[in-house]
Amino acid sequence: MGTFDYARTRATAERLIAKFGQTGAIRRTTTSGPPYDPVTTITDHACELAVMEYTDDKIDGTLIMRGDKLVYLSTAGLSIEPSTADMVVIGGEEHAIINVKPLSPAGLVVFWEIQSRR
């Protein structure tokens, strides 16, 4: 039996998110310089993402709140790994990243799953 081609699965995920998703950004804020005079830099990293609502059975009012968004983030052209310190820009509006998980069978990230909140 042959091995599964995860690179092909990744390409399929990238294609589907590009086709059915939208353009957005991962907004990262970095601070540099001395502590008494820090310089804050905000950088937007363009990305393709598919945004969905959580189904009622997933909303528990504690971990997942009504209004949270489930975001599938494509790896295509993304030069950073998203983190909970970043923001995701959806339709021009900033959303906090509450949780981020890579779908990475065999160590290759196919796409990122993000829980976002306004």
Rank of each mutant, 00 (worst) to 15 (best):
F111G: 00
E94G: 15
V71G: 02
D86T: 06
D57H: 11
G67H: 11
I98Q: 02
T62N: 12
M87C: 04
T29C: 06
G107A: 08
R118W: 07
F20S: 09
K58R: 14
R117T: 00
M65N: 13
R28K: 10
A18P: 01
I17V: 14
S104E: 15
T40G: 02
V110N: 05
G24F: 02
H45M: 07
D56Q: 12
R8P: 01
D68F: 08
P82F: 04
E94Q: 15
T31P: 00
V89M: 03
T30D: 11
E53K: 12
I90M: 12
W112Q: 06
A25W: 04
T31D: 00
S79I: 14
W112K: 07
M65I: 13
L73P: 04
A7N: 14
L73S: 11
E93Q: 10
F111Y: 15
V110Y: 03
I90S: 11
V71D: 02
C47I: 00
A25Q: 06
L63V: 07
R8M: 11
T41R: 06
L78N: 06
L16H: 02
G33P: 00
I64G: 04
V110A: 08
A106I: 05
S74M: 07
S32I: 02
T23G: 15
D5M: 06
W112C: 05
E48N: 13
E48I: 03
G77V: 12
F4Y: 15
E113Y: 01
L73Q: 07
T3N: 14
A18Q: 09
V89C: 00
K19D: 14
D56G: 13
T40F: 10
